[in-house]
């Protein structure tokens, strides 16, 4: 079989597993998978900033939260709003926040970028707690109607069934991840990496660094908004602690570092590993964050490029060992 055929087969097999997943594994693991997917997209959007453009954000939760609050508010106040427009309104809220912040944020980088995001993220958190009439304060917004996925006159799928919501979430999240992956493969994706590695040279080549950063920033904001919007509908609740807390901002940092910061699929792998770890540790202790914090420290200390980086290093060593004699061995 050729490599191409193997890839096709693997793709078809993966799709089949995805389709059969709810009936194979039951409701509990179906919901676990939706959570994994939401955080995978959220972490990928974060990694678009850190891994591809070199911008570390400690306030990414504000876009996640904006998406969640946008959708929740829209569904609460607009009667009979269909599913996809509700999603779109959440994304629009995240994008609006991104547009507001971008002019300031594209001019800074490094520690200042990280700290200003921490500060603005905390500001959003405090605002969500204090503006009770709009956001519901500590209780958040919950119990809003989840509209069915409908094509007028053709079909209407109830979204309150976990399996149906699973298909909707996987489609939306999968498409978003694919779109972001596609962007990194375009010439624009190369400019992004150039901005990370040497912004002066990119500017010298005639690309506009602030404009590039602004586009990446909005892409990251919008896709985090998608994740937040799906999260709000999945939980049928959005709250300051659940969507805007500083831990929600630290989550993608952890997921990305565990998986591998330099790779597009690193954050997804990190989300999967983290999901398994927290599933296992939560059976023994309530302090899942203690374990994940310790893992974060270990990863930074011993494997700064994450699991994917470790795998690449192991492969390189294996190649060096099994290379033809004389080629790899140093002259004595």
């Amino acid at each position: 079989m050729t490599r191409r055929a193997v890839r096709w087969l693997a793709g078809v097999a993966a799709l089949a597993v995805l389709l059969a997943y709810p009936s194979l594994f039951g409701i509990y693991f179906t919901n676990s998978f939706v959570t994994f997917g939401i955080f995978a997209l959220y972490a990928v959007s974060f990694n678009l900033l850190l891994g591809f453009t070199g911008l570390l954000s400690f306030g990414h939760a504000m876009f996640f939260g904006a998406g969640g609050y946008g959708t929740a508010l829209a569904l609460t106040h607009l009667k009979g709003l269909p599913l996809l427009p509700a999603l779109a309104l959440g994304v629009a809220a995240a994008l609006a926040l991104g547009v507001l912040l971008a002019p300031l944020m594209v001019r800074i980088s490094g520690t200042a970028f990280a700290m200003l995001h921490l500060a603005f993220g905390q500001l959003m958190y405090v605002l969500a707690l204090k503006l009770r009439t709009i956001t519901g304060g500590e209780d958040g917004i919950g119990g809003f109607p989840i509209p069915p996925f409908s094509v007028p006159g053709v079909l209407s799928v109830d979204m309150k069934t976990p399996a149906n919501f699973y298909y909707f979430a996987v489609a939306v999240l999968g498409f978003s991840v694919f779109a972001l992956w596609f962007v990194t493969k375009t010439p624009f994706g190369c400019v992004m990496v150039g901005v990370r590695d040497n912004p002066n040279r990119v500017a010298y080549l005639g690309f506009r660094v602030p404009h590039t950063k602004a586009v990446v920033y909005l892409l990251a904001a919008g896709s985090a908004g998608v994740a937040g919007s799906v999260f709000a509908m999945f939980q049928n609740l959005v709250s300051a602690d659940g969507a805007l807390h500083v831990f929600v901002s630290f989550a993608p940092v952890q997921l990305t570092m565990i998986g591998g910061v330099g790779s597009f699929f690193g954050p997804i792998l990190g989300s999967a590993i983290f999901g398994v770890i927290s599933e296992l540790t939560s059976r023994y202790t309530e302090r899942v964050e203690l374990v994940s914090g310790a893992i974060l420290i270990l990863v930074i200390m011993y494997a700064p490029l994450g699991v994917i980086g470790m795998w690449h290093a192991a492969r390189a060593r294996a190649r060096a060992r099994f290379a033809p004699r004389g080629a790899a061995e140093p002259a004595r």
Binding site: A114, G293, A294, P304
Partner: peptide, 22 residues
Amino acid sequence: THAFGHLGELILTVGISLVILE
């Protein structure tokens, strides 16, 4: 972690703060 640059150190301090808190 000094060798990995500022971002690594920043993230490391996040890990330390999580471990202390928990």
